[in-house]
Design a protein around this nucleic acid. Sequence first.
DNA 1: ATGCCTCCCCGAGGGAGA
Length: 259
Amino acid sequence: MKIATFNINGIRARLPQLLDWLRAAEPDVVALQETKCVDHGFPSLEIEELGYNIAIHGQKGFNGVALLSKLPLEDVSCGLPGDDEDEQARWIEATVVGSRAVRICGLYLPNGNPAPGPKYDYKLSWMERLRHRAAALVEAEETAVIAGDYNVIPQAEDCRNPEAWVTDALFLPQTRAAWRRIVNLGLTDALRIYEPGPEVYTFWDYQGGAWQKNNGIRIDHLLLTPQAADLLTDARVDRHVRGWEKPSDHVPVWVELDA
DNA sequence: ATGCCTCCCCGAGGGAGA
């Protein structure tokens, strides 16, 4: 079962690229972020024509997450538990049953800039809620993949110019400590298993020729519970997609599970 | 980099992103 995450940066603006990638990469499950449209604006027909079922958690203008799956999406749940006041569409989860049942969680973690400030406070509190949800999945011994745009640069080797990020919400010590508290529940950062080297990035800014200079950061991650990690057979970045016409600033990242 | 792009809102110029 091939499971991918892709911050699409506007699904209506990016539909041709998304369809081209789906046809070429043939993922079984995709977690999308930054769909930037309400549910009735989602281009469902074109995606369903490629054989995907769809679960959407949209919002007007920004945010927005979705799951695509060639297998049925069961027990869909939208919204990260822990704050009933939180209206932002950043979390969706569902179960997909192949040879094994896999819980798929798609997330769009808040950016948090500028830090310090209320946006950074929201990021840290969201990460604490994420830790609680991840702990529950680990405790229940679920076969689960927690995939998405984490807006976290875990370590210095995950960016080209660490010194440029030292005061940024994506790389602040508090952010990376919160990330470690989540990973240290016993989760596996899947891409690191198959791409251990430096200069493995998933985002390149549109500005300043970042792509041409390979001035990237690794912020899109797939975290696996132990039961999912047992099934891991591959994990890669579809880096080439960033060189396409009118690309997203993120590229797809995927894992292959024997499930 | 207090923003060199690009998305969204809409139908101008501002918010958001990372």
